[in-house]
Structure formats: C-alpha cells, structure tokens
C-alpha cells in the first residue's frame, strides 16, 4: 500500500478522473458523436437521393430520346409513304394523260383518215362521174363517127382499165 501511495494512488482523485471521463463521454456524445453521425447520415441520404434523382433523370432522358427517335422514324416513314403515294399518283396521272392524248390523237387520226377516205371517195365518185360523162361523151362521139365494133370494145376496155386503175389507187 505504501508503494502504491508513493506512485500516487489516491482514491478521491481516481473517482474524480472517472467522473471526468463520464462527463466528457456525455459532452462528446451530445455534441460530437450524435450530431456528426446524424450529419453523416443526412449527407449519405442526400447523396443517395441525388444519385437516385440523377438516375431517374437519366432514365427519363433516355426514354424521351427513345420516344423522339420513334416519332422521328414514324414521321420519316410517313413522309416516305406520302412521297411514294405522290409519285404513284403523278405516275398514274401521267400515264392517264398520255393515254388520253394518244386516244385523242387516235380519234383525230381516225377522223382524218375517214375524212380523207370520204374525200377520196367523193373525189373518186366525182372522177367516175366525170368519167361516165366522159365515156358517154366519148360514146356519143364514137356513135357519131360510127366506129366499128372492135374499136368500141377497145375503147371501153381501155376506159374500164383506166377506171380500175383509178379505183385501185
């Protein structure tokens, strides 16, 4: 006991130190550990929150991007189809128009041909008519001059041949 006394053992001081320790424990608990740990938690929560928010925002952005992409693709497809349709319509219209023009031409041609035919027929008729007159005239002349049989025939043949040639052309 003497030795430990010499080392400085002193019960009241020991108790004072213990009490001091406990007081310090209390002070540190209230003013250091609790608030700092709470702050750490708050900060961790904040960080987690913001990370989550960022994640969400990223997801939303990705979604929006995808949506936009889809719409864009749709619009493009629509435009393409519209264009195709227009082209087809234009093609159809062109073909139709061509057809109509061709038919018109055909009609004109037909008419022209018919007219020509008619005119030619008319002309032929007229020629023939003339020719008959001519033949009558010639016959009259022949009759007047009293032509022999053979010369008659030759004449008529010749006339007919000529008329045949006319008709054929």
């Amino acid at each position: 006991m003497e030795g430990i006394q010499k080392l400085g053992f002193h019960l009241p001081t020991l108790i004072i130190f213990m009490v001091n320790f406990l007081v310090l424990l209390g002070i540190l608990y209230v003013f250091a550990y609790k608030p700092v740990l709470r702050m750490l938690d708050t900060r961790a929560g904040r960080i987690k929150e913001s990370v989550e928010a960022a994640e969400r925002a990223k997801q939303q952005a990705a979604q929006a991007h995808e949506e936009m992409q889809k719409q864009l693709a749709q619009a493009r497809a629509e435009g393409q189809s519209l264009l195709e349709q227009a082209r087809q319509q234009a093609e159809a219209y062109r073909r139709e128009e061509q057809e109509r023009a061709r038919q018109q031409v055909e009609v004109y041609l037909q008419r022209a041909r018919q007219e020509i035919q008619a005119e030619r027929d008319a002309a032929l008729d007229e020629v023939r008519h003339h020719f008959a007159d001519l033949a009558v005239l010639a016959a009259e002349r022949i009759l007047e001059r009293s032509v022999d049989r053979e010369s008659h025939r030759r004449l008529i043949e010749k006339v007919l041949e000529e008329s045949g040639t006319l008709r054929r052309s």
Partner: peptide, 9 residues
Amino acid sequence: TDLNMPLAL
C-alpha cells in the same frame, strides 16, 4: 502522469 487517471480509464 498521475496513476489515478490511467487506472480510472
């Protein structure tokens, strides 16, 4: 340096 303090701890 006081024995009581380490002892208390």
